[in-house]
Computed example of a mutant assay.
Amino acid sequence: MATDRLILRRFRASDAPVLAAYRSDPDVARYQSWDAPFDREKAETAVRNFAASSPDEAGHFQYAVELTGERRLIGDVYVRLHDNLRQAEIGFTLDPAYQRRGFAFEAVSAVLDRLFRVQGLHRVTGECDARNTRSAALLERLGFQREGLLRQQTFIKGEWTDDLLYGLLAPEWLDR
């Protein structure tokens, strides 16, 4: 899948060092389930698992986000397709060197387009730590509606955190 500036593709073994590097950034890991540093062995295992999954089958799939001109991995977009193949959850991570330039918006938009237009999904959800205002703002720019706040929902990195819940329906995306 491609946009004007990006290629969204399956992960490959050569992506492991770059994945380890941006996931090792403490600012990137702050609101995520992994800890920094994210060592190369973990990255190699993650990349193998990412490459073995399918975007068309129920379960987890991770798109590698590559900058077209540089042929460089700059992030990833996560999709968990529900068993009914009509709903999914989405998440995203971007190398800090490529943030604030519209790449995350572009990548997630491409994935949403595939989910709604090609795969025929009815609903996509997103969830983020309530302190992660930049991720919440991105979801809102994409058209997601804030549907809830789960107070002290997640115990992560030694503390209880609030989670924001977002949802996007097919007609909301398709009618944009």
Rank of each mutant, 00 (worst) to 15 (best):
G143R: 06
Q145I: 12
W173L: 04
D25M: 04
E147C: 11
L81D: 12
F61H: 14
R71T: 01
T68I: 09
A51I: 01
G120R: 05
E106G: 01
W34T: 10
A97P: 04
Y63H: 13
A29E: 02
L168K: 01
E41F: 07
S54W: 10
D76Y: 02
V18M: 10
N84V: 08
A20S: 15
V124T: 10
G126F: 04
E140C: 09
A16Y: 04
A104M: 12
T133H: 14
A36D: 01
L112I: 06
E172A: 13
D15A: 04
Q119V: 01
N132I: 10
D15P: 05
R146G: 11
D39I: 02
N84S: 14
A21R: 14
T93Y: 05
D162K: 02
L164W: 14
E44Q: 08
Q99W: 00
L169I: 12
R72D: 00
A51T: 03
V118R: 12
L149M: 14
R23M: 07
A36K: 01
F103Q: 00
S14K: 06
Q153A: 15
R5E: 05
F116P: 03
A20M: 03
F92V: 13
T68Q: 13
A52V: 03
G69L: 11
D15I: 05
R123K: 14
R117L: 11
V108W: 05
P26N: 08
R30N: 05
R117Q: 15
G59Q: 04
E127C: 08
L139R: 05
L94Y: 04
R23C: 09
I90K: 03
D27V: 09
T3N: 02
E140L: 13
P96L: 02
R141W: 04
T125F: 12
D175T: 11
F144N: 09
G102N: 03
F50G: 03
Q153K: 14
P96M: 05
D113E: 15
P26I: 09
V124G: 02
A36N: 01
R40A: 08
L115Y: 03
E127Q: 13
L169C: 08
Q99P: 04
G69A: 15
D163S: 15
R23S: 03
S54Y: 10
I156V: 11
F144G: 07
R80A: 13
